[in-house]
C-alpha cells in the first residue's frame, strides 16, 4: 500500500464536549447529540449558537454540547428560545426536547412558536415514553404499549390516542421545515443528519420555524437490550409515525 495514505473519515465533532454522558448503554440520545453537533460544526455555527436543554433524560445536555446552553422548565424551551432569539436575532437557537416535554406539558409553547414562525430549530426526541421519571406513559406512547402508568398497555378509551406532532405542526403556516427521521439504523441516522442540517440552514436563512423529530429508543424503560430496542422502533414506531418531510416550504426547497 505504498501509494495509499490514511485519511481521517470520522471523528468526534467539536461542538461536543469531552464529557461522558449519563445516558444508558445504547440510548440514542447520544446519536442525536452527535448529529446536532456535527451539523453545527459543518455549518460553522458553534460560536454563535445558544441551546436550550429540556426537562427529561436530556436535562444535562448542557454538559455535552460545547455551546452556550440554558436549562428550561419542563416544556418551556420554545418560549425560552423565543426570548433569546428575539433579543439576539444574530444568534442560532436550538431546543432539544423529548416527547413529554414537547408534546405534553409544552404542547402550548411548541404550537405557538411554530405558529409564529419563530426562527428557531427544534430537535424533538420521540421515544414513546417518559425516560427520566422511570417509564411512564407519554403523549406518544403507542396503543397497547405497556408503561409504568399504563401497566395493561395504553388503553385508547382511557388515555386517548398518541399525538403525531410533526403532522400537527406541519399544518401551521409559520412552520417552514418539519421532518421526521429515525435513529434505528445507520442509513436512517445519515438521513436524520441531513434533515438536521436542513433545519439549521432554514434558520440561518431566516425562513422560520424548523423541527426535526427523531424516533428514538429507550431500551431501559422498554425493557429491551439496545439492539432489540432499535428493532422495536422499526417494527412498531415507524408504522404509526411515518418517516419523511412533513413541511418543506418553497423557500426551503430553494435553499
Amino acid at each position: 500500500m505504498n501509494n495509499a495514505e490514511e485519511k481521517l473519515v470520522f471523528e468526534r465533532p467539536r461542538s461536543l464536549t469531552d464529557a461522558h454522558t449519563h445516558y444508558c448503554p445504547g440510548c440514542t440520545h447520544g446519536i442525536a447529540h452527535r448529529l446536532v453537533a456535527e451539523a453545527l460544526d459543518e455549518l460553522g455555527l458553534r460560536e454563535r449558537t445558544l441551546g436550550i436543554a429540556p426537562v427529561g433524560c436530556a436535562v444535562l445536555a448542557y454538559y455535552y454540547f460545547n455551546v452556550d446552553m440554558a436549562e428550561a422548565a419542563h416544556g418551556r424551551a420554545p418560549a425560552m428560545a423565543t426570548g433569546m432569539k428575539r433579543a439576539n436575532p444574530d444568534k442560532i437557537l436550538f431546543t432539544y426536547q423529548g416527547d413529554g416535554d414537547l408534546a405534553a406539558i409544552g404542547a402550548g409553547e411548541i404550537v405557538h412558536a411554530a405558529g409564529r414562525g419563530e426562527n428557531i430549530t427544534v430537535i424533538f426526541i420521540n421515544n414513546a415514553i417518559y425516560g427520566m421519571t422511570g417509564g411512564q406513559m407519554a403523549p406518544t406512547t403507542l396503543e397497547g404499549q405497556k408503561t409504568t402508568s399504563s401497566p395493561m398497555g395504553r388503553d385508547i378509551s382511557i388515555a386517548g390516542h398518541p399525538l403525531r406532532m410533526s403532522e400537527l405542526l406541519a399544518t401551521l403556516d409559520g412552520a417552514a421545515y418539519v421532518a421526521r427521521g429515525s435513529l434505528h439504523d445507520p442509513k436512517h441516522i445519515r438521513r436524520a443528519k441531513k434533515a438536521i442540517l436542513t433545519a439549521f440552514k432554514v434558520q440561518q436563512a431566516g425562513l422560520g420555524f424548523s423541527m426535526v423529530e427523531l424516533l428514538s429508543a429507550c431500551g431501559t424503560n422498554w425493557k429491551m437490550d439496545p439492539v432489540e430496542a432499535l428493532g422495536w422502533i422499526k417494527d412498531n414506531m415507524v408504522p404509526y409515525f411515518p418517516l419523511g418531510d412533513y413541511k418543506v416550504t418553497d423557500a426551503v426547497k430553494n435553499l
Binding site: A70, A79, M80, R86, K91, E109, H112
Partner: peptide, 21 residues
C-alpha cells in the same frame, strides 16, 4: 423586541430566555 405571548407562562419563560443573554 416586543412580543405578545400565548400565556403568562410563555411570557415569563421568554423573559427568562432573554435575561440569560
Amino acid at each position: 423586541a416586543f412580543l405578545q405571548a400565548e400565556s403568562e407562562l410563555a411570557a415569563i419563560n421568554m423573559v427568562y430566555g432573554a435575561a440569560c443573554t
